[in-house]
Nucleic acid binder design. Structure first.
Lengths: 219, 219
DNA sequence: CTTCATTTGCACAGCACTGTGCAATCTCGT
DNA sequence: ACGAGATTGCACAGTGCTGTGCAAATGAAG
């Protein structure tokens, strides 16, 4: 029984697999389970071990042979995804001195490995609860979109993004800043104007204009 | 038995409560349950009905007297939160013609009701899975922070936000754009440069410079 | 003090999982 | 065809919930 997921941790599977490069049956299965799990969790982040096992053409018990727990499986997966993202991010910024170029390069690099990164997004945004929230926020998002659409049309905003995608960005930006407050990185009182500023610049409004506007409004 | 949560839907509680303005005992309890549940779910988005009930100084069975299911309770709460957000957002933009001012005003307005809005954030970002992801992404976020710190220092970036908060924003922005791709609003291929552009402007880089830089890099 | 709405306290059924143990079976490489 | 390693198929224990039914206690309003 594969030494009951010993392979999962230290890769101490079997002579053949260690010395020769060709992977053992267990190695292949383990890989297949991970790959299928990725796809399956992308569809449904709450997929059970049974769903994953069946999708991988294997029995639930076998999955437990490779991973001691569901958490371990998902953990391995996110570890791989994060590692890929981290590598891309690092590669993007290596040897670059200009911070702006670093940001741009690393973003582009991360975007390249979207497949892996997408797992993280799916896991993050697709919980049952999250679905409900985003659905309920739709009217607000649509009102936002309309404003953004007008602003882009008039040239007040500058962005290659379609208005609706920009509305997504705005929504998530607010979430990010609220979370920053929750984590004590930001003082709630003063952060309001910072939030407004960020929303404006994210839409492509020049920083100077944003500063001026926010100052005017929060007197 | 309060007609078993009839009050939850159509408010058909009782003569006294309907005619006179003073709320019945049930009404008071219902309100208290909602308020406590808000606080409790803020601490732990996965709080069970029992935890909520106890915190409200009431027995689990009583909560079921007011809300037919956990989902209904959470739903009522998010409905209230979203309604508050929507109202603030609408109030912020009413009668404003300039889109930039609309965005700024509505952001500030929404920020005012942070308490309610925070529930949505907590529910959205605090799932067990999400915790794991954010934790694992920490090294990447820190590398990002360092770049942002340098950029802010040099004046390449302009933002009132501390670097770490800006890193939160960047992280969430990428999530937003990936989700936009997942939802078919954006073409994955071309979106890379849009993403880079958005990350730059969010950091306060002028749109013109962002355009130029991204164009140079994605040739 | 009566009455009616509400709340309480259990008990119970059910569900959808997660992890494990073990014997039987399969499948390679040799 | 052998044998070690891997997989399968059950069965089972355990967990931590959710949602319900019902009789008894409580409390406020008249």
């Amino acid at each position: 029984m594969i030494t009951e997921h010993a392979a999962a941790r230290g890769r101490a599977g079997r002579m053949t697999a260690m010395t020769t490069g060709n992977p053992s049956r267990a190695d292949v299965n383990r890989r297949r389970i991970l790959d299928v799990a990725l796809a399956e969790l992308l569809r449904d982040p709450d997929a059970s071990m049974d769903q994953i096992a069946r999708a991988a053409g294997v029995v639930r018990r076998t999955v437990y042979g490779h991973f001691p727990s569901r958490e371990a499986l998902v953990g391995t997966l996110t570890d791989e995804a994060v590692a890929a993202v981290a590598a891309a991010h690092a590669a993007g910024r290596e040897g670059v001195v200009d911070p702006a170029e670093s940001v741009a390069r690393s973003t582009l690099a991360v975007w390249e490995i979207a497949d892996r990164y997408r797992l993280l997004v799916a896991l993050a945004q697709r919980s049952v609860t999250m679905q409900g929230i985003r659905e309920r926020l739709t009217p607000v998002r649509e009102a936002s979109t309309e404003i953004l659409r007008r602003g882009l049309e008039q040239g007040v905003f500058a962005s290659p993004l379609p208005p609706y995608a920009l509305a997504y960005v705005h929504e998530q930006t607010l979430f990010a800043l609220m979370e920053a407050v929750n984590d004590g990185l930001l003082e709630a009182r003063e952060a309001g104007s910072s939030a407004a500023f960020t929303m404006l610049t994210a839409a492509g409004v020049p920083a100077s204009r944003a500063t001026e506007l926010v100052a005017k409004l929060s007197d």
